[in-house]
């Protein structure tokens, strides 16, 4: 896990986003025990509440089970049926992000290959 405290996204969101990517891609399998809040906070040099917030978010999404003794355990999670309009909402977000990248000068071909790679990793 690698987080940038100077980035616009708050630290807890960066932790949650990276863990979610690892969970969706299967890098973290059901039953796997994650570092406890205390261990991850210690290693990252962050307040316990920051890491706990990320874990709580993933627990609310059904990815993790949080227990005082065993810490965070990865759950078997079925992919939910997307609510109506969810695909369109993500398409708009993706379009906004792509426009931002194009405006910053990132070539379309680089975006295409990055998108393909990301889809392959997370499928």
């Amino acid at each position: 896990m690698r987080i940038d405290l100077e980035a616009a996204a708050p630290a807890w969101r960066q932790i949650a986003d990276q863990l979610r990517a690892a969970l969706v891609s299967g890098q973290l399998r059901p039953g796997a025990q994650l570092a406890s809040v205390r261990e991850l906070a210690l290693d990252l040099g962050l307040n316990h509440n920051t890491v706990a917030e990320a874990y709580r978010q993933l627990a609310a999404e059904g990815f993790l089970q949080l227990e005082r003794r065993t810490g965070a355990v990865v759950l078997e999670r079925k992919s939910p049926r997307p609510p109506a309009g969810e695909q369109e909402r993500f398409a708009v977000r993706l379009r906004t992000l792509l426009a931002e990248a194009r405006a910053a000068g990132v070539p379309a071909s680089a975006l295409q290959s990055a998108l393909r790679r990301a889809v392959e990793e997370l499928s």
């Binding site: 690698r2 987080i3 940038d4 994650l34 570092a35």
Partner: peptide, 9 residues
């Protein structure tokens, strides 16, 4: 300020 850590126990 980049921080790195393992997510394993």
């Amino acid at each position: 300020d980049i921080r790195e850590a393992s997510v394993e126990r």
